[in-house]
Simulated scan of single mutants.
Amino acid sequence: MGLGGCIILIAVGAILTFATDWHMEGVNLDLVGIILMLVGLIGVATFSGIAKRRRVVVPPPTTTVIEEERHHHHRDGYSDGYGV
């Protein structure tokens, strides 16, 4: 159940609790509405906690590149290796 389903549960629960005056024998619609709202709120809290963990961006570790200076030995009078 995603975030939309949780919001629908909260809305249906609120409608049953606050906007209706139906009376059914053996069923307390106010209590059913409160239970639906609580389940919806728990779902929203769980969903937001999971979504928050997914959004954490961990920067990749940076590596330091150390360039070594290489000493070229002068052979045959060519210092750059191209023979010019």
Rank of each mutant, 00 (worst) to 15 (best):
M1S: 14
M1F: 11
M1L: 13
M1W: 10
G2I: 08
L3Y: 07
G4T: 12
G4R: 14
G4S: 13
G4M: 09
G5M: 06
G5T: 10
C6Y: 05
C6F: 07
C6V: 00
I7A: 14
I8E: 01
I8P: 00
L9H: 03
A11H: 10
V12N: 11
V12R: 13
V12W: 09
V12H: 11
G13C: 05
A14W: 03
I15F: 15
I15R: 10
L16N: 04
T17I: 07
F18R: 00
F18W: 04
H23L: 08
M24S: 04
G26R: 10
V27E: 12
N28Y: 00
L29R: 11
L29V: 14
D30Q: 11
L31S: 09
L31V: 14
L31W: 05
L31Q: 09
V32N: 02
V32F: 13
G33A: 05
G33N: 01
I34L: 12
M37D: 03
L38W: 00
V39S: 08
G40L: 03
L41N: 03
G43Q: 03
V44R: 01
A45L: 15
A45M: 12
T46V: 11
T46R: 05
F47N: 04
S48L: 13
S48I: 12
S48P: 00
G49S: 14
G49V: 15
G49C: 10
I50A: 11
A51H: 02
K52C: 02
R55I: 06
R55K: 11
V56R: 00
V57Y: 14
V57H: 08
P59G: 01
P59A: 04
T62P: 03
T63R: 02
T64G: 01
T64V: 12
V65A: 11
I66H: 09
E67G: 02
E67D: 06
E69Y: 08
R70G: 02
R70C: 03
H71R: 14
H71G: 10
H71S: 12
H72S: 14
H72T: 05
H72N: 12
H73E: 12
H73R: 14
H73P: 05
H73S: 13
H73C: 06
H73G: 11
H74N: 10
D76W: 07
D76L: 02
D76P: 01
G77N: 12
S79M: 12
G81H: 07
G83L: 09
G83H: 09
G83C: 12
G83R: 12
